[in-house]
């Protein structure tokens, strides 16, 4: 690694090197790191955004953890992980497993289409799906067409269905990404490995578990980190589709942070929830990295 350096320090540290990283770090420290530290401090206070901050210690945290609406919003986030992360990854793996040696003509076009949901604003995505789920939208018209009028309803207005149906939007956004990622990964696996498995008499299923899956470890970690963090953050989509409702049936922590800070003027409480969300994401990402760490 260090042989790749142009300049090595002669006798003492060359401080002018720091000038190169200075501009980037100024932006990063002022607009990311300082706000994080400030949020951390605010989380120990009671503050309405205008008057003096009042130090309350851990009170905001204990209050948040005792608040049923907040704990259930965290539960909702975990349900969304199933839709944003688990389903697309399973689907992507299944399809990648099927495509081991198939060369598909027109793959570039398929790839471009499957990747499309990744590039769009979640507000646009949310509006498209709001229409699909609307009382007189395509989904219900389709159900009516097949004589299933009893099933059709205002999906996003339903206490029982709104959360899984918002989750399905996440599945729609993510499944193309995991497919492309895993298919690209599968194509990098040396074909000798599959030949060797064939010689050993491995069937398609054992081939998948013994060759494909272990060699996709890197891609799986990437997909997990990417989709899990998005499922836990997820503000834009919830804001435009349900706003957390009906009631609090699709409420998630980031939506609570917004409501508490900007509608209820509970800045201290919102900050402590923000720190809790940060902690949750860091813990899950670390867990993913630890579980899938190379054991060599």
């Amino acid at each position: 690694m260090s042989t790749n350096k142009i300049y090595r320090p002669q006798t003492n540290i060359d401080y002018s090197s720091y000038l190169y990283i200075l501009p980037a770090f100024i932006f990063y420290l002022i607009f990311v790191f300082f706000p994080l530290a400030d949020t951390f401090y605010n989380s120990f206070t009671e503050w309405n955004g205008i008057s003096e901050k009042k130090w309350v210690g851990l009170e905001q945290y204990t209050k948040n953890l005792a608040n049923k609406k907040i704990t259930s919003s965290i539960k909702h986030s975990f349900i969304l992980i199933i839709f944003y992360s688990f389903l697309p990854i399973m689907l992507g793996l299944l399809i990648a497993g099927l495509m081991i040696r198939v060369k598909v003509r027109g793959m570039a076009t398929y790839r471009a289409i499957l990747f499309l949901p990744q590039i769009l604003s979640m507000i646009v995505v949310g509006i498209a799906w709001r229409w699909i789920y609307a009382p007189k939208g395509p989904l219900n018209s389709g159900l009516d067409f097949f004589g299933l009028e009893e099933v059709s309803r205002a999906w996003l207005g339903s206490f029982d269905y709104s959360l899984p149906f918002v989750g399905l939007i996440g599945t729609w956004v993510m499944f193309g990404f995991t497919m492309i990622l895993f298919i690209a990964g599968v194509q990098k696996i040396p074909s000798e490995l599959y030949d060797a498995a064939k010689v050993d008499g491995a069937g398609a299923i054992s081939e998948f578990f013994n060759v494909t899956l272990p060699n996709l470890k890197g891609e799986i970690v990437v997909a997990l980190v990417f989709t899990v963090t998005l499922a836990l953050r997820n503000f834009d989509l919830i804001y435009i589709t349900t706003g957390g409702g009906p009631g609090t049936s699709t409420m998630i922590p980031s939506m609570f942070i917004y409501k508490k800070a900007f509608q209820m003027n509970q800045v201290g409480s919102a900050s402590s929830l923000g720190i809790m969300l940060t902690f949750l994401i860091f813990t899950l990402v670390s867990l993913i990295l630890i579980i899938f760490r190379d054991k060599k």
């Binding site: 990311v32 300082f34 994080l36 949020t39 605010n42 942070i257 800070a261 923000g274």
Partner: peptide
């Protein structure tokens, strides 16, 4: 840290700054 940080949690502080 900045790569993983959910910025949803720091926007409040950014707003007041």
């Amino acid at each position: 840290i900045g790569l993983v940080l959910p910025y949803e949690s720091i926007v409040i502080s950014l707003y007041y700054t």
